[in-house]
């Protein structure tokens, strides 16, 4: 149950884009999170894994203001955003891609991107170029309703919509849920490409092994608290983590 030191990250506390520390809270009266600490450095992909009911998605929602936070702080880009409403957080530079119902099904791919940029003013050409460059498959489908696309392509639309606001931090809630292994790899690759455009990424994953192999750093949560943390490779090599997930 020991918390490993933060030796794996070269960044100091001020350098983190996101620092949620010792957060407690839940949706109603009961606390689902019992003190969770997760930090994301600039241009870093951080993955949260853990068994069902560990509070992975809940931890992500705490960042985005979708949770009643009763203790601890969430600091984003040097500003305390604990208790902010989601629409304020969006404007500040965090975008969130829900696990399900994450596209406008009856609207075209391009309209989905337009809605993503709803709060932005001025010329959006660069933003459109960026998403169509990241998701070249979608260029031919820009006039197709998002609901008619395959699961993998819908996930791309969802990520593209979130990127239209040019966030500093992107939150992805189980982006590979229900996708075939081929699409899972593709989504991971796209996530890296997105990171390379200068975005920090925090994602929750059910596929722990694959996710830890691809991320920069990972956190293992269990029953609403931190269990392990470290680089993806270190966590994969950890006996206890292996036992938890990998059937080792």
């Amino acid at each position: 149950m020991s918390h490993s030191p933060m030796s794996v990250s070269p960044a100091t506390a001020d350098d983190f884009v996101l620092a949620m520390e010792n957060v407690r809270g839940g949706y109603g009266d009961a606390d689902i999170l019992q003190g969770v600490t997760i930090k994301v450095a600039p241009r870093e992909i951080v993955v949260i894994v853990g068994p069902n009911g560990a509070g992975k998605s809940t931890a992500m929602k705490a960042v985005f203001g979708l949770l009643i936070v009763r203790g601890g702080t969430v600091v984003f880009d040097g500003e305390d955003i604990t208790g902010w409403a989601p629409n304020r957080i969006v404007k500040r530079g965090i975008c969130y891609v829900p696990q399900v119902e994450n596209v406008f099904r009856e609207m075209t791919v391009h309209e989905n991107f337009e809605m993503g940029a709803f709060l932005r003013k001025g010329d959006l050409t660069a933003a459109y170029d960026r998403v169509y460059q990241l998701f070249p498959d979608l260029k031919a489908k820009r006039k197709t309703p998002a609901g008619d696309l395959s699961g993998g392509q819908r996930q791309m639309v969802a990520m593209g919509r979130a990127l239209m606001l040019d966030p500093k931090l992107l939150l992805l809630d189980e982006p590979t849920a229900g996708l075939s292994p081929k699409y899972m790899e593709q989504i991971f690759q796209i996530t890296r490409d997105v990171r390379d455009t200068g975005v920090s990424i925090m994602l929750v994953e059910q596929h722990a092994k694959q996710a830890l192999a691809f991320c920069d750093r990972g956190y293992v949560l269990a029953t609403g608290a931190n269990r392990h943390e470290g680089t993806g490779a270190a966590l994969l090599a950890d006996q206890e983590v292996a036992h938890m997930f990998l059937g080792g």
Partner: peptide
Amino acid sequence: DNPDLARLSG
């Protein structure tokens, strides 16, 4: 289409 996502989009 999707009220929650519309609100998330601002």
